[in-house]
Write a protein that binds this DNA or RNA. Structure first.
Length: 108
DNA sequence: GGTCTGACTAAAT
DNA sequence: GATTTAGCCAGAC
């Protein structure tokens, strides 16, 4: 690990590690990176996420598509998640606890 | 180099 | 139980 020049790259790598049909929260990634409570940084980094980073699999603690607006269209994120097998309703992930992927636990 | 802001989170009210 | 406040860190101006 640690081939990261910037905090952003760390976030991107973790995001890429998210298995299909799963999703995680900004805070979970933040803690995994050691940034602790700075979940904002993760969200911000994801906003600047380049192509190849499944930012649509990263949601907030409630499993809500907070940053959907950062995509081409507000439905891009939702449609992609549905395509991956994640049920999305009212901009929120259904069975969030089931699709929740914690890097500190799964990727440990 | 100080200030502001941001796809957040959790605790307090 | 829903809304508000405070905390956190890193980048842009």
């Amino acid at each position: 690990m640690m081939a990261s020049s910037s905090f952003f790259e760390d976030v991107y790598e973790v995001a890429k590690l998210i298995p299909k049909g799963r999703a995680t929260s900004y805070g979970a990634i933040a803690r995994y990176l050691g940034t602790g409570l700075s979940a904002r940084m993760v969200g911000w980094a994801m906003h600047a996420a380049p192509a190849g980073v499944p930012a649509h699999r990263v949601l907030n603690s409630q499993g809500m598509l907070s940053g959907k607006h950062a995509f081409k269209t507000a439905k891009t994120m939702e449609n992609r998640l549905k395509k991956e097998g994640v049920k999305v309703e009212n901009d929120k992930v259904i069975h969030w606890k089931k699709v929740f992927w914690d890097p500190t636990t799964e990727l440990l």
